[in-house]
Amino acid sequence: MEIALIGVGKIARDQHVPAIAASADWDLVATLSHEGTVDGVPAFTDLDELLQHCPGIGAVSLCVPPGARFSYAEAALKAGRHVMLEKPPSVTLAECHALERLARAHDVALFATWHSREAAMVSAAQSWLRDKPLRRLRIIWKEDVRRWHPGQDWVWEPGGLGVFDPGINALSILTEILPDAFHVSTAMLDIPENRQTPIAAALAFHHPAGAEVTAEFDWREAGPQRWDIIAETDAGTLALTHGGARLAIDGVPQSNATEVGEYPRLYAKMARLAAARAVDFDLSPLLHTADAFLRGERRSTAVFHW
């Protein structure tokens, strides 16, 4: 199927373009962006013009910053195109619900992707935790924003999520691997004096069985980068590290049987959804993020400059 890529920034160049190029399901025939292009692919800056010049396009993949996703997705769905969305699918839950209603009304596929759920060992962690009584779970998600989001000012604007841009990846894994429902009970948000979104956050969750579940997100980590989830159960301790790429049980590394990356798996799933005109639109990671902002106590911290 012919597909158009909307937004050609860092994540598109690093992940989406190679995944589409390697896929037997998709043919990238157009891009729409105000900041980048893909060699050999026709480039546009207006969606109506793109669809007019490329009427065979069956799907669009949206990689623009969250604040711009709704308007593009709305237009594409109304035009009868399948839509794939980078995380988070939009800025607000209300916008997301509106997109789902549109997709169902126009009988097209809609996919809210959570790429970290496709990390190599997430499924194995989910299977291991399924029948284990949980005592304690800690998320430690610490990275250097200057390294991973260089010069991207949109992350600091309303709707940009701040440290929850990577933090929502951890929440997407957590909502995948825990068998029980949980919700945010407290949150502390550290917001630079000259920015609109947090540079760090500490969360605590209510777990129905009384397990202690916490998360620590920090964008100020200049040392070793950490994307770890540590779960202590009655049957042992699980360590899901490197953003879900590695798994150890009681310190014993578990084997990784897959060599397929996160984004190739996402595009393969999108192909299946498009064929079935199905909707896969889980909003639980965004729900927890929104609750963190609603529950969060704001604490002013030092100014941030690139």
Rank of each mutant, 00 (worst) to 15 (best):
residue 156 W to E: 05
residue 155 V to R: 14
residue 248 A to Q: 15
residue 62 L to Q: 10
residue 29 V to Q: 09
residue 37 T to E: 12
residue 186 T to V: 11
residue 67 G to M: 13
residue 96 C to G: 07
residue 253 P to H: 04
residue 18 P to L: 09
residue 86 E to C: 12
residue 198 P to H: 01
residue 105 A to M: 04
residue 233 T to I: 08
residue 227 W to C: 09
residue 90 S to G: 15
residue 55 P to W: 10
residue 99 L to F: 04
residue 179 P to T: 08
residue 114 W to H: 15
residue 169 N to Y: 09
residue 125 A to C: 15
residue 256 N to V: 15
residue 214 T to C: 10
residue 161 L to C: 04
residue 228 D to W: 06
residue 22 A to I: 09
residue 37 T to C: 06
residue 39 D to C: 00
residue 83 V to K: 11
residue 97 H to I: 00
residue 281 F to E: 06
residue 13 R to V: 09
residue 75 A to P: 02
residue 1 M to N: 07
residue 243 G to W: 06
residue 199 I to G: 11
residue 10 K to Q: 12
residue 245 A to F: 06
residue 180 D to Y: 11
residue 117 R to M: 13
residue 156 W to V: 04
residue 173 I to P: 01
residue 104 R to S: 07
residue 3 I to R: 05
residue 148 W to P: 03
residue 12 A to W: 09
residue 132 K to W: 15
residue 55 P to E: 04
residue 264 P to H: 12
residue 177 I to Q: 04
residue 216 E to T: 15
residue 51 L to Q: 02
residue 295 R to C: 11
residue 65 P to N: 02
residue 287 L to H: 02
residue 158 P to Y: 03
residue 28 L to E: 04
residue 41 V to M: 01
residue 27 D to R: 11
residue 241 T to K: 10
residue 297 E to M: 10
residue 32 L to V: 00
residue 172 S to P: 12
residue 125 A to V: 05
residue 229 I to V: 08
residue 105 A to N: 10
residue 168 I to H: 02
residue 165 D to S: 14
residue 127 S to Q: 15
residue 88 P to T: 13
residue 70 F to L: 07
residue 284 S to M: 14
residue 267 Y to T: 13
residue 10 K to Y: 06
residue 102 L to W: 03
residue 20 I to A: 03
residue 165 D to I: 13
residue 295 R to N: 13
residue 254 Q to I: 05
residue 220 R to H: 00
residue 94 A to D: 12
residue 128 W to T: 07
residue 57 I to W: 02
residue 147 R to M: 13
residue 79 A to W: 09
residue 187 A to C: 11
residue 251 G to M: 07
residue 142 K to S: 14
residue 247 L to R: 03
residue 34 H to D: 09
residue 83 V to P: 02
residue 277 R to N: 13
residue 80 G to M: 08
residue 21 A to E: 14
residue 225 Q to A: 10
residue 196 Q to N: 05
residue 47 L to W: 06
residue 119 A to H: 01
residue 93 L to M: 10
residue 301 T to M: 09
residue 66 P to Y: 09
residue 92 T to C: 01
residue 128 W to V: 14
residue 113 T to W: 00
residue 263 Y to C: 05
residue 130 R to G: 05
residue 52 Q to A: 15
residue 153 D to Q: 12
residue 211 A to L: 08
residue 62 L to K: 04
residue 148 W to C: 13
residue 120 A to H: 13
residue 15 Q to I: 00
residue 200 A to H: 00
residue 81 R to E: 08
residue 306 W to V: 07
residue 220 R to K: 00
residue 160 G to N: 02
residue 111 F to L: 07
residue 203 L to M: 09
residue 8 V to F: 10
residue 67 G to W: 06
residue 136 R to G: 02
residue 247 L to H: 06
residue 40 G to S: 02
residue 28 L to V: 02
residue 58 G to D: 08
residue 49 E to I: 13
residue 189 L to E: 08
residue 75 A to C: 01
residue 186 T to L: 08
residue 80 G to P: 03
residue 50 L to C: 12
residue 44 F to H: 11
residue 248 A to L: 11
